[in-house]
């Protein structure tokens, strides 16, 4: 499989959040502002990259019986590293992401990619796949947090833009998160189905 397709698939075709619907917990929780969204996206990408590299290298040695605990330990260590780094260098982000940084460990995307892809493919492809998935995840987070921030608190990157029209506060609160993600996924399904029909028709 050529490299570009490997990388590309994570972003649009098999976007972990919008198409495969994995890892919804952090996606809903932290996307109140765009900065948080991006922060979480990058953190997850880092962990995904690290764990994919390690797992694809050690893929052969891990016996299938305990592969889940092994992957979890590897991922957990990467997550702790990221956790400590964030606490050290950007306390504001740490305060807003709160409990969700340690929870990257149980983010289904990382374990999913590790088990489904990294343990079976070569290092170079695993890295590409990790990057693709990571960027796809961050893109989805950015999209959702942008919508929620603009509608919810009338600002972007914490700079107020909507002036005197009072913002729709629900988008900052949990119900808004669920509904916004629901609408985005519906739109994605609508377009993928339409394009599928178009090229099926063309074929």
């Amino acid at each position: 499989m050529n490299a570009w397709k490997e990388f590309n698939k994570g972003i649009i075709k098999e976007n972990p959040v919008l198409v495969a619907l994995l890892g919804l917990c952090p996606v809903l929780a932290v996307t109140t502002t765009v900065i948080n969204g991006l922060g979480m996206g990058l953190a997850t990408t880092f962990v995904l990259l690290g764990s994919n590299i390690v797992i694809s290298v050690m893929g052969k040695f891990i016996p299938s019986k305990v592969r889940i605990p092994c992957y979890i330990v590897i991922i957990a260590s990467f997550v702790t590293i990221v956790d400590l780094l964030i606490q050290a260098f950007s306390p504001a982000l740490n305060k807003s992401l709160g409990i969700f940084i340690p929870l990257i460990v149980v983010n289904c995307i990382i374990l999913g990619r590790a088990e489904a892809f990294a343990s079976r493919n070569k290092l170079w492809h695993s890295i590409l796949d990790a990057l693709g998935m990571g960027i796809g995840f961050t893109l989805a987070l950015f999209l959702l947090s942008a919508i929620r921030e603009i509608l919810g608190s009338g600002a972007i990157f914490n700079i107020a833009i909507t002036g005197n029209i009072s913002p729709i506060l629900i988008f900052v609160l949990p119900p808004g998160a669920f509904a916004a993600l629901g609408f985005i996924i519906a739109i994605v399904i609508y377009f993928t189905k339409k394009s599928a029909e178009k090229n099926k028709g063309a074929k």
């Binding site: 040695f61 891990i62 016996p63 019986k65 605990p69 092994c70 330990v73």
Partner: peptide
């Protein structure tokens, strides 16, 4: 489930 090797690797 399967055998012993897993303990050492873990």
């Amino acid at each position: 489930l399967t055998k012993m090797r897993s303990v050492i690797v873990l």
